[in-house]
Every structure is written in structure tokens, then in C-alpha cells.
Design a protein around this nucleic acid. Structure first.
Lengths: 162, 162
DNA sequence: AGTGAAAGGTTTTGGGG
DNA sequence: CCCCAAAACCTTTCACT
């Protein structure tokens, strides 16, 4: 598997921004012809760099406006079948094992607080779960697709005067 | 703006799963013709239900394998210019204001621990920041596109025996 | 609102540098 | 590995139900 070059990174940035644009458009942005862009995209899909294409939906429009992060303290470690069963709730978007204490961090998006409560209820039904601690999101300032800005490294940030 | 019906939700689920499939394919899945699917998709874009189309990238392949969540305690509240400047770091994927204590929650994806440290350094340079608390992700069990499974509500979960 | 057929554009393939 | 050009496919429009 070949490492990514500058063309690849520019193409990825363009795709993260808007995956519905044509190869010709992207080719113009990065300085390649449409078939050249196509070939690189095909290669990056084969190599597992590009996992797939999806749409971004508005949480409000989809009627799941309540976003929360749930820290879960567990007895033991690892993905038990019971914890992985949570995957089947569409409300659960992410599950990570994190360092800092014996715990999992989950990102969940629910219709309302009742739905969140049900989900927490399900959590406490699994015997490994010792306790949970929930952070309800009041407002989201930034939420962008994974790994946006593949191209840039560390931009100069000029802090405005206080 | 019309509320979503069952066809709409099925179309959204299909698009979240794979936005590169053709209208004809989706039409077959949901029981409509290609132009009918197209018209609904066009309407949902206009109404802001569908925000855009992106690709999902592998964090490893993109050379930012270190995912972390950072809790930030701040003095005061709201989006100051200085905090919003963090948006310009591509490493910062999400910034939320959360209830539970006076704090922000950020999701950041960096190349390595040095890059994470630099970012934390930047945080402490902004005068409103009182303290931070970082959770480094050891492994990700689930991370799916926003609002996956628009169609389903609460599936029956059968817990396997312990 | 949905369908079928046709026009316009994009993806995809192949020959050549 | 890239470009140009042609074939195949998809999106988009339109008349009709």
C-alpha cells in the first residue's frame, strides 16, 4: 500500500468537503484530469483509506435533537457481547474504550430525554456496568466529518486581542 | 417544510449507509422509481434535512490515529473568538457546550501525543480556559456516520446469557 | 405524487505517451 | 502514472397518469 502523496490529500479534502462533485471539478482544483482523479480514488478505496460515502443529516430534521456523551464505568474490560449489543440501538453513534479510568465513552443521539433515560436503563441492566455519568450537549459549535482537512498541517493561528 | 414519511426515512438510511449508490438501486430497495427517489432527495436537500455528502476516512490511513476527548473548564460562557479560533485546527473535529459543569467538550484527532500536547498548549493560552481533562481513546468499538438508522426506532434486544 | 422515456452529463474503460 | 477520447451508465427533465 503506497503512502499518500500531496494529490491524494487534496483529493481527500475535496471529497470530505463535498463527495458529490464530479471528478472533472476535483481535477481542476488539484491539477489533474478526471480519469487520473478517478484512478486515485479507486486505489484509495481499495486500500481502505476511503471507507465509504455517506450523507450528513441535520439532527433536528431527523428528530433526534438531543446529543449526549455518556461515560460508563465497567467492571472488567473489553467488548463483552452484552455491551456490544448496544450497537443495535441506532441512537448510539460511538463507543470508545478510553484511558483515564476503567471506562467507556459513548456518544448518543436521542429524540428526547425519555429516550435517553431508556438507554441509560438498558445500560444499567448489563451487569458489568458499575456507574454512568452523562453530559448533555446544550449546543454544538463545531461538528465536522471525520478527518476533515487532511491536507493542512498546523496553520498559523493569530489570536485576536482580548 | 413537510414532515418525513416512511419512504423518506428509508431513503435516508440507504444514503447514510452508502451515498454512492444509484437512484435506481435505492428505488428498488424502497419501492419507488428512480425519478421519485430523486425528487425526494432534492426536496430533503432543499429543506436542510440532508446537509451534504462526504466520505468516511480511516483515521489510521490518514495518519491521525490518536483520538481524544478533551473536557475544558472555562471562566464565563459562550463562543468567544479565541475559543472559536480552535476551529481552524483540522485536528479539532467537534466542539460542544455541555451541561454538567461549566465546560466544553472537544473531540480531537491527532497524529501523535506531541500534536495532542501542542493542542492542549494552545488551549491553555486562551485566558478563559481554567483547566482541561483529557480522555485518550484506546480503541474504538463503534463509530458510525451521524444519525445512522433513521428508519428504526427501538429494536428488541435479546441479551445473551451471561 | 408517481411513472416511463428521452436528453444531457458523468463515470469508466482503453489506447497511447 | 498521466492524458485524451469513446462507450456505458446515471442523473435530470418532461409529458402523462
Amino acid at each position: 500500500m503506497r503512502p499518500l502523496d500531496d494529490f491524494d490529500r487534496k483529493i481527500l479534502s475535496a471529497l470530505v468537503e463535498d463527495a458529490s462533485q464530479s471528478y472533472a471539478q476535483m481535477g481542476e482544483q488539484v491539477g489533474l484530469s478526471a480519469p487520473a482523479v478517478h484512478e486515485r480514488v479507486k486505489r484509495m478505496k481499495k486500500d481502505g483509506v476511503i471507507l465509504g460515502t455517506t450523507v450528513r443529516l441535520s439532527g433536528d430534521a431527523v428528530e433526534k435533537p438531543l446529543l449526549s456523551f455518556v461515560q460508563v464505568s465497567t467492571r472488567g474490560w473489553g467488548k463483552s457481547q452484552r455491551l456490544m449489543a448496544l450497537t443495535r440501538f441506532p441512537e448510539v453513534e460511538e463507543i470508545h474504550a478510553v484511558a483515564g479510568s476503567t471506562c467507556l465513552l459513548m456518544k448518543v443521539r436521542t429524540r428526547d430525554s425519555q429516550a435517553l433515560e431508556s438507554l441509560l436503563g438498558q445500560l444499567y441492566m448489563t451487569p458489568q456496568v458499575v456507574s454512568t455519568s452523562t453530559f448533555v450537549v446544550l449546543s454544538t459549535y463545531l461538528e465536522r466529518p471525520n478527518q476533515a482537512g487532511v491536507t493542512e498541517s498546523w496553520p498559523e493561528i493569530v489570536f485576536p486581542d482580548v
